[in-house]
Each structure stands twice: as structure tokens, then as C-alpha cells.
Design a protein around this nucleic acid. Structure first.
Lengths: 339, 339
DNA sequence: TCATTTTGCTTAAACGATAAAGCAATATTC
DNA sequence: GAATATTGCTTTATCGTTTAAGCAAAATGA
């Protein structure tokens, strides 16, 4: 049972495919199609259960109504949630989403961009990896619309949706200080990505503002590729000195979860012996015996904004960029103690 | 800067597009293209950075090299992980994945199927929702290859990848019994979906086998649409009688996580007062103060098998179906106590 | 009544790639 | 040297849809 095409309907109705096309794309008024004929064609289309061939349409129109989404890892709840909102938002606009995970790897990122662009996506939503500046530059040259989320490169003019990482981090750390913590460590990723630098910057800002001298020894960095070992080492170093840290600020939820797993094995009690605060939410952090205080990124807003900005860019065919910075909320729970 | 097409290369080389096509699809030997010319064409293609138009190819070949993936909710870690393995596996075979979330809703499911089919996906991987039998039947009539994962309908001949739910559930419950638990409740979804019925069946099998008389009052069902309220009610009923349950078996991770959140608020200690066991893993269950014993579904295997079976079906153009049942592993941790 | 406008449809080209078929020019065979 | 085979390319049709342009027939105007 082959698929029904315009031609089948045309044959059945005894007219040309053009006429059928006009009717079924609701251009029958403009194209002066007879009322009776229009009705007849619509009926036949319904009877044969005609479904337009999207690929043929795309070829003709040069638009695929598909968005490419590149995240670091779709199995990370933060990105999965973003993907979810992007999917919903895209669907509302009759767009679909093709996705891929870069694993924070530049080569995979390039691969994905190539594949998605060859599939003629109309635009891309990307969480760029470290060192992918040149890939973005190339997209710009090819005039392929894209929007960055979660991160961006200050040196590259591109649309992006991000949160005010520096202020948010500073706010989180201030909260720890106000809760009476004095020796506040931070665990971040070892990366040059701007959003992490900013979170580190915010951490340092807050310490400085409260006149706390932080040796760099309180700032630990874990490699994405060796997360577990590096985090364990970092936490050992933070907690096992003569002056152990009394609080840790994690730069992302993956870091927090991996860190807490290890802290659990050490038998350290939260928040009594150690306060914990992190960026990003996650069910694991809710279910933790001391639900973890966290910086909430408004995922829904980010996803919606990303799609909106991207579709605007696609529609306007302009190279103008839109940068959106969104505020976060500090969700205070038990993990920092309360006083 | 328009995209480079075969025609551009042809013009530059002073030949026809056909010749260029033959060369760039490596049919130059078969099509008897001169060596010199082949080389020249390849060079021009490289110089102009030619990227084939996938859409045009799809239109011609009738294949899009795209898989449609329909999960209940991409932001659920179980499905996100499945999506991840499917993505990876698809990429290995030069396929891409378009996805959508059905939210366990029949209408959304139908919507998604329509959209994906119109986009000419070559096949679908679906976690079918309750009541979607007829949609699958329709896919069969349209001869669109598809593979079900996680669930299937016994009455519909279709390829599927699933775990042996009944035995796995029975194994989990037996584990509770062997750990000395006597009053074992179960929290499942209120649904007719077969995998849930089977898990319930396994629970009942195990009780029966150990001569435990379970009133139906120990079996609770929560509506997907009213998860929180229903779970709280279920747990209240299980724990607040004169003979409170001393163990709960959750049919999925979402149920377990939502249930444990509530149990936390009740101040009930796991495993001392209550043992807990669940289907599916999740970071939340790892990080829980009494890491939760769970039935591990081999996600990687499921994803790989799903893609493999689907691609076979696409290639063979057969209506034969393949049903794969995979064994689970019981991962024993603290939440059931130890003796 | 004849010129002009409107109506209702068809033709044909296009999007980009593919591939069967065709056609000279050259090479091989006897 | 004539018949045949091979080489190296072009022509043309096709996938399904869209849309500008074209063309009769009918309707309107004077």
C-alpha cells in the first residue's frame, strides 16, 4: 500500500496536481479554484487519508521545519529537561527536534553540527563545548541561525540564553556566609567555559566582599572525563586538612551528586559538619536526607526563550543577535543548616 | 552565500550533474568516469566544501535515515538514558533521531506518530501508551516499521524489546520475603499496560509462592495524572493501619522517588521501619541515605536491541516481528535491611 | 455585438540528487 | 578495414510538492 500523493488525488478527481496543491494548502481562494471542485478535492483527500510529504515540501521550500539540538548529554536531567521544554515549544510552532549529545567533546560537536546541517535543520540550539568557537564562527559564515544555551563565548557575537552566573554564584556563597560558614570550598569543572569561570568569579566575589581570604586551595576543579576520581580527591583535600572546609559550593548538579555520593561514604553529616549548596536542581537533591539548597535555573524560560529567539532569527533572516540573561532563584532547604 | 549543490560543481568542472553525482557517490568505476575527471571533480567538491543535501537524497531514495522516537517523557531519567543509547546506536548506523514525548496520553501519541510519519521517518521506536493499540495497528497497515520498548500489547503482533517483568518482580518481592518482611505492599500505576500488570502479577506470584495471603488492600494504584496525591494516599493507607506494611515494592522509579519523598516527610526510617525496593535505577535512589535496592533494566542492551531490530526490519522490508525479552539484575543495597 | 475582464483550470519549471538509457568517439578484434 | 566492444560523457526522467505563467471558456461591460 503505497503512500497517497497529490497525484493520486489529482487522478481520482480528474484534475491536475497543481489544483490539488492549491486547495490543500488553502490557497484555493487566491488561486480561484471553483468551490465545488475545492470541496470535491478535500473530500477525496480525506477519503484517501492524504498526508503531505514533508520531505518534498522541504526540498521545495528550502525549509525543513526542524531544529537541531546539541546538548552535552541528553541523559543528564538538566539537559533532558531543557530538551523537553524545547521539544514542546518547537511543536507549538510546528517544528520538530533532532538531537545529539556532544559529551563535552569538540570533535563530536563538530560531527553533530555537520550531520544536523546536512539534514537541513533550519537552525540549531547548542550548548557549546570547550574549544568550539571556530565551529560557531563557521556557522555564522554559513549564515545558519543558532542560539547558544547554558554557555556562550564572550568573544563571539551570537545569540544566547544564559543565567547571570556570577551574581547567582555570589548569592549562593553569600547565603553560606550568612548561615555562619567560614571556610567555604568550591568544586567546579576544569574548563575554560565562560559560565564556569563566572560561577567561580561569583564565588570569589562573595568571599572578597565579606573579607574572607580564600587561598586558591579552597577552589577545586574536576575533569569532566575523570569526574569521580577528581571529585573524590577534591573533597578529600577540602575536608581532611587541619582546617577542614565547613561548606562546599558545587558548580553543577552532576558535581554535587557525585560529591554527595562520596561524602555519604565518608559518614559526614550534612548540614551539621558540612553545608552544601549547588547550581541546578535534580530529584536526587530533593530526596537527599538534607534536601540540598540550590540555585534554580528557570529551565522552562530558558527553553522557551531559546526556541523563540531561534525562530525569530530564522524568520527574519537577519544576522542580528539577541542575548538574554535570566535571573535565578536560590531555593533554600536543609543542606546549609538554618539559624 | 548559498549552499553548494551538484550543479555548482558541474558548472565549475564543465560537465553534467550526473557525472558529479556518480563520482561523489563513489560510483565512478561502475559508471566508467575517467580517472582524471573524477579527480578533478573531487577536488572541486572539496574546494567548494560541498555537502550533499540530505533532503533531496531522501526524496529520491524514499528513505530519510531518520528514526522517530516516542517516549513517555524525555525528562524522565529512564527514558532519557534510553534515548541516549538509541541516539548513539543510531548514529553508528548513520541514522538520526527525532523524538517526542507522549506524556502517556493517547492523543499526543497519535499526534506524534502523525508528525513523525509525515517527516518520513524510516521507522519508529515507541513506548506505547495505554489505549494506543489501534495506532499500532494502523502503522502495521501502513507497513511502517516500528519497535516497541518497555511495554507491548500481548494481542498485537509487533516487534518489541522488554524485560521479563513478571519474573523480575517476583524476584524482587521474594528478596523482601527472604529478608524477613511479612506485610509487603506494592505501589503501581493505575493502567492496563501489560508491563505493569506483569509486575503486579509477579508480586502476587511471589506472595502466593511463599504462602502469604495478600488482601488486595496491599496493592495500591496511582494515576499518572495525579501521581503525588494518589501516592500519598496509597502510602498513608499502607502504613497507617493496625497492621502497617513493613515493605513496599514500587513498580517504577518515578513511583519510588515520589513515594520516598513522602515517606521522608513522615519520618519513617528505611530500612528499619520499612523496606523499599523498586524497578529502575536513578541517581536519586543512589544518593538516598539508604541506597535503594532495585531491579536493573539493562538500558544499554534495550536501546541497542531496539535500534538493531528496527534497522533489520527496515532493511528486510518484511512484516516478520522479533520479540526480545531481556533479563534484569537485582541490585541489592541497604533499603531492604540485611540479615 | 464585440472587446474586456474574470473564472477555473492546466502547463511547466523548480527544489537537489540519482540512475537508467542514449550516443559519440575511441579501442579492440578478426 | 569493417564489425564490435569499450570508454566517457550527456540526456532525460524521477521523487512529491509548489507556484508563476498561460490559456480557453464564461461573464461582464460598452
Amino acid at each position: 500500500m503505497k503512500k497517497v500523493s497529490l497525484k493520486d488525488i489529482a487522478t481520482e478527481a480528474g484534475v491536475s496536481t497543481a489544483l490539488v496543491s492549491y486547495v490543500l494548502t488553502n490557497k484555493d481562494k487566491k488561486a480561484r479554484v471553483g468551490e465545488g471542485m475545492a470541496k470535491k478535492i478535500r473530500e477525496i483527500a480525506r477519503k484517501l487519508n492524504y498526508q503531505p510529504n514533508h520531505i518534498a515540501r522541504s526540498l521545495k521550500s528550502g525549509r525543513s521545519f526542524t531544529i537541531g539540538l546539541i546538548v552535552a548529554d541528553i541523559s543528564n536531567p538538566f539537559f533532558a529537561n531543557i530538551a523537553r521544554t524545547i521539544e514542546d515549544e518547537a511543536k507549538k510552532n510546528n517544528y520538530n527536534v533532532i538531537f545529539g549529545s556532544s559529551d563535552e567533546n569538540v570533535d563530536k560537536s563538530q560531527d553533530l553540527i555537520n550531520v544536523l546541517v546536512n539534514r537541513q535543520v533550519d537552525g540549531l540550539i547548542i550548548t557549546p563545548t570547550e574549544g568550539s568557537e571556530q565551529q560557531l564562527q563557521q556557522l555564522k559564515e554559513q549564515k545558519i541561525p543558532f542560539v547558544l544555551i547554558d554557555r556562550f563565548f564572550p568573544g563571539i557575537a551570537a545569540s544566547y540564553i544564559a543565567v547571570n552566573n556570577r551574581e547567582s554564584a555570589a548569592g549562593a556563597v553569600s547565603h553560606l556566609i550568612k548561615a555562619g560558614r567560614k571556610r567555604i570550598g568550591m568544586v567546579a569543572y576544569k574548563t575554560t567555559l565562560h559560565h564556569i569561570s563566572e560561577r567561580i568569579g561569583g564565588y570569589q566575589d562573595a568571599l572578597q566582599q565579606h573579607k574572607i581570604k580564600a587561598g586558591n586551595s579552597w577552589l577545586k576543579k574536576a575533569r569532566y572525563s575523570h569526574l569521580k576520581e577528581d571529585i573524590q580527591l577534591a573533597i578529600d583535600q577540602l575536608l581532611k586538612g587541619k582546617q577542614p572546609a565547613d561548606a562546599i559550593f558545587f558548580a553543577t548538579n552532576s558535581l554535587a551528586i557525585e560529591g554527595l555520593k562520596y561524602i555519604n561514604t565518608l559518614g559526614i553529616r550534612i548540614p551539621d559538619e558540612l553545608a552544601v549548596i549547588t547550581f541546578d536542581e535534580g530529584e536526587a537533591l530533593d530526596l537527599f536526607y538534607a534536601p540540598v539548597t540550590f540555585v534554580r535555573q528557570p529551565i522552562l524560560e530558558i527553553g522557551k526563550a531559546a526556541v523563540r529567539v531561534l525562530l525569530e532569527q530564522i524568520a527574519d533572516d537577519t544576522s542580528a543577535t539577541t542575548a538574554i540573561s535570566i535571573d535565578t532563584t536560590l531555593v533554600v532547604r536543609k543542606s546549609c543548616g538554618s539559624r
